[in-house]
């Protein structure tokens, strides 16, 4: 059971519904030794890997949900099941009210899927040819197509790249072009698997801003995976955390913080490179004149700490922040290992 289960949602409002979904893979184990040749031939050793074990969750329409987990936790398997690429072994799957296996074609008219390690663009054609291709394949009305294209080109700054071959784009440019392609048919739900993989700060910024805007202004439901927890926290209001194929947490990022002992951070800048000794905070590290401490965020303790800091000679600045989500998740991954 997840640490914090979301409340039941009326069926009409549900974009994604997974009920007790299980998926296992068989992995052949081959030693490559001569002595095992006969065994490999007649009865090769198999290992069962449980990718998903009785996973259940719902995503409401208009939600922006982060789907995270350590490597091999089952994230991509889930997304492939939602997109109808993989069949679950057991359980029920509904996406936008459709069964992805039986109703693939109507579902694909309303769903957008982007895997960060692959492209839907035509490799040897300028990206505008891929956009024109999508218009015919999805049978997108001219007005919708022009409106969506114009908006995507503007927001993702793709106009100068329209005549560039997909194979000649940088990774960031390609991801932006793929995202634009994904949005041309006005999908109600978009599923993104590691869309910020390998992007530089600026490219990532553009993508995050655009996704947030889409969710906020058009009510597009977004389900996104990434290993960058800071990015996910900035975008998503809800986090689903997988561990070893099971849903280990379902809730907000702040609720996740409460599950760990990692506490609030405070950065104290002074005119000295020597960190001041504080009674109510634990020193973690110093970077020049900036000294990082971990503190108990209890309000009474914070008041006392601020008083203590006010008496420090050479104080220049104080900056407080929530417990870093990366550290919180890392601790949980370690705990669940």
């Amino acid at each position: 059971m997840p640490a914090s289960a979301s409340t039941a949602t009326p069926p009409s409002d549900i974009a994604v519904n997974l009920e007790q979904v299980t998926k296992r893979y068989l992995q052949w184990q081959r030693s490559g030794q001569v002595s095992n040749t006969l065994k490999n031939l007649l009865r090769p050793e198999q290992r069962v890997v449980v990718a998903l074990n009785q996973v259940s969750f719902q995503v409401r329409q208009g939600e922006f949900v982060a789907y995270a987990g350590a490597n091999g936790a089952g994230k991509s398997t889930t997304l492939k099941i939602l997109a109808g690429m993989l069949h679950p072994e057991t359980g029920k799957v509904e996406v936008l009210g459709y069964d992805p296996l039986q109703q693939r074609i109507p579902l694909m008219r309303e769903l957008g899927v982007l895997f960060g390690n692959r492209t839907e663009l035509w490799w040897d054609l300028p990206i505008q040819s891929s956009f024109a291709w999508k218009k015919v394949i999805w049978d997108i009305p001219e007005a919708t197509y022009q409106h969506n294209l114009e908006q995507a080109l503007e927001m993702l700054e793709l106009k100068p790249l329209l005549n560039t071959f997909a194979r000649e784009l940088s990774l960031g440019q390609r991801m932006r072009a793929d995202l634009a392609l994904l949005l041309l048919h006005s999908p109600k739900l978009i599923i993104l698997d590691e869309p910020t993989l390998g992007l530089d700060v600026l490219a990532k910024r553009r993508m995050i801003d655009y996704l947030k805007q889409l969710n906020r202004e058009k009510g597009v439901t977004v389900l996104i995976t990434s290993h960058d927890m800071d990015d996910l926290e900035e975008m998503a209001g809800r986090l689903l955390l997988l561990s070893h194929g099971e849903l280990a947490f379902d809730g907000t990022f702040d609720a996740l913080r409460k599950l760990t002992t990692i506490r609030r951070h405070i950065t104290v800048t002074t005119d000295s490179q020597v960190a001041p000794e504080l009674e109510r905070a634990t020193w973690l590290r110093s970077d020049g004149f900036a000294h990082l401490y971990e503190v108990n965020s209890d309000p009474r303790n914070m008041r006392l700490l601020l008083g203590e800091l006010a008496e420090q000679p050479g104080l220049v600045d104080i900056e407080t922040g929530k417990a870093p989500i990366e550290a919180v998740v890392a601790e949980l991954y370690r705990r669940w290992r």
Binding site: G84, M85, R104, I105, P106, M108, E120, I137, W138
Partner: peptide, 10 residues
């Protein structure tokens, strides 16, 4: 083939 499964066409 996964790419083909993402298109709304048989």
């Amino acid at each position: 083939l996964e790419h083909m499964l993402l298109l709304p066409l048989p």
